[in-house]
Design a binder for these strands. Structure first.
Length: 266
DNA sequence: CTAGATGTTAAGGT
DNA sequence: CACCTTAACATCTA
């Protein structure tokens, strides 16, 4: 479930299990999980290093290497991290395993849409990936948000455009739209300043609440407030405001759940 | 057996 | 040029 809140929790998990530990080995289970780097080069840059700091930008996790540079991770659709000790079974689909003195951290990704790499400079990496401001960056203002949205396009597609704002994916876009009562295909050019402000506030509120609820963990949505659409985001799901069945449509090429009564198309 | 799934990106169309 | 849609990637599950 790797959108911003999930990756934020993975980052915290990474800190708990890998920060300040020396990497004694790296094992690549599947080369396809590597981003423009060979297994040998990855090992050369990571083995013998300690992870000295972490950083997250949108859906990307970065970890600073004491030997220089940053390890980068993107989790695609099905990636996550799993720590395990010597003697414990290695998780299935462990594509890149980092070994420490007596335990390991696995980068797990069944579908192989995610990537692990190493870059020299974190800021340059963000630029090269053409990522917009991180949705939860405290320095990111409503004014900048309005500018980032631009003048044209369907609201859901724009929210999910990582070059405009980094971190929002299909799932959380639906929640933000539901909470602001906006139809997914609303033209961003038609939003009022008040609506833009509301979307910005909802984005931050939804992300903070989801991180707190344990985003990334198994069925964490049950821990979200009952007013959240995410708890009902499945076939037969009901509008939390009592308007009956949610509708399903395709927007921005992705399956979209919404309540036609709360979110009418104007 | 088939369809669809939290992401990204290339390719083709309007 | 701006925007939209579709396909593709790899694998699992409903």
């Amino acid at each position: 479930m790797p959108e911003l809140p999930d990756v934020e929790n993975y980052t915290r998990y990474f800190k708990r299990h890998a920060l300040k530990k020396t990497v004694t080995g790296v094992h690549v289970g599947d080369k396809r999980a590597l981003a423009k780097i060979s297994a040998g080069e990855l090992a050369r840059r990571v083995v013998g290093s300690q992870f000295t700091a972490t950083r997250r930008h949108g859906k990307h996790l970065l970890a600073r290497l004491s030997k220089g540079g940053w390890l980068t991770m993107h989790f695609g659709m099905t990636g996550y991290l799993a720590a395990f000790k010597d003697g414990q079974a290695e998780p299935k689909y462990d594509r890149v395993r980092f070994d420490f003195r007596s335990d390991h951290l696995g980068y797990i990704d069944p579908r192989l849409f995610g990537r692990v790499g190493v870059v020299d400079d974190a800021d340059a990496f963000v630029k090269k990936q053409r990522l917009g401001p991180d949705a939860l960056d405290p320095r990111f203002t409503v004014k900048e948000f309005r500018a980032a949205l631009g003048k044209k396009g369907g609201l859901k597609a724009v929210l999910m455009d990582q070059s405009k704002i980094a971190g929002i994916g299909n799932i959380y876009a639906d929640e933000i739209l539901f909470q602001t009562r906006l139809h997914p295909l609303t033209d961003v050019g038609r939003l009022t300043p008040a609506q833009i402000k509301a979307v910005f506030a909802a984005m931050r509120r939804v992300f903070q609440a989801s991180i707190k609820a344990g985003a990334g963990a198994e069925s964490f949505t049950e821990k979200l407030p009952k007013s959240y659409l995410l708890r009902q985001r499945e076939k037969g799901g009901q509008c939390p405001r009592g308007h009956g069945a949610l509708h399903v449509m395709t927007a921005a090429g992705r399956t979209t759940y919404y309540c036609p009564l709360c979110q009418p198309r104007k």
